[in-house]
């Protein structure tokens, strides 16, 4: 919950509020981009690596930092936990449709 996980913005789904699809270790989910959008606009975030905290991109990071952070999270056993939480949440929402 506290550490967040790196992911890559693959497409923009909404300008306002800024949101898009982020690929987190192969899991694609909708992420709020409000805290990372700059004067260049939300489209400029496509392809960028971001640190995702509970569904919100909180910081733009470079690719090396993303890889390092992911490696550290894997060692701490937190990466799987985050990804499982994403899967579980998505499955839970599907079950309610």
């Amino acid at each position: 919950m506290c550490l967040g996980i790196p992911g890559r913005v693959v497409e923009i789904t909404s300008e306002d509020p800024p949101a898009g699809i982020v690929d987190v270790s192969g899991v694609r989910r909708r992420v709020d981009l409000s805290c990372t959008v700059t004067s260049e606009g939300v489209a400029a975030l496509v392809g960028k690596w971001v640190l995702v905290h509970v569904g919100f991109a909180m910081s733009v990071i470079d690719e090396n930092e993303a890889a390092r952070t992911l490696a550290a999270l894997e060692e701490l056993g937190e990466a799987m936990e985050e990804i499982e939480a994403m899967h579980r949440s998505a499955a839970m929402l599907e079950g309610t449709e």
Partner: peptide, 17 residues
């Protein structure tokens, strides 16, 4: 009680229910 990854998923639950 439902486990969610994000508060946005809780908001989505509210939309759907």
């Amino acid at each position: 009680v439902r486990m969610v990854y994000s508060p946005l998923d809780a908001l989505e639950l509210a939309r759907r229910n």
